[in-house]
Nucleic acid binder design. Structure first.
Length: 105
DNA sequence: GTCGTGACTAGCC
DNA sequence: CGGCTAGCCACGA
């Protein structure tokens, strides 16, 4: 039995996939786009399952305060990938956060 | 049907 | 700047 994504999760993945390389977004932003502005936490849960990885760039989603946040395979891994995408991270924080931030919708 | 948990957020000290 | 609290939503047990 394959994992069945809920409409909510599907919406999260769809929004996340729109984030271009070299840019990033936040859990709150995705939550806002999918019409669940208060569900940033639920968004994190959906990305944690993320059956579409690495098709869905869930690593390009960080916290609203600019900190990297969590990652299924480790926060460290997430940071490494983001740095590959030319995103500058220092001490677990996105240095130029407002510059690389990709506003959805 | 109820409870606990989590890759969160905004507010307050 | 850092730490703590309450509120929020979806999901599994």
């Amino acid at each position: 039995m394959i994992h069945v994504s809920t409409p909510f999760e599907n919406a999260v993945y769809a929004a996340c996939r729109k984030i271009p390389r070299g840019r990033l977004s936040t859990y709150a932003e995705i939550a806002r786009v999918i019409k669940h502005p208060k569900s940033a936490r639920a968004v994190g849960n959906a990305l944690n399952k993320n059956p579409y990885a690495p098709q869905v760039p869930c690593h390009r989603v960080v916290r609203s305060d600019g900190s990297v946040g969590g990652f299924a395979t480790g926060e460290k891994k997430k940071t490494a990938i983001l740095q590959k995408e030319k995103i500058v991270i220092h001490n677990g924080r996105v240095v130029n956060f407002p510059e690389v931030f990709y506003k959805l919708k």
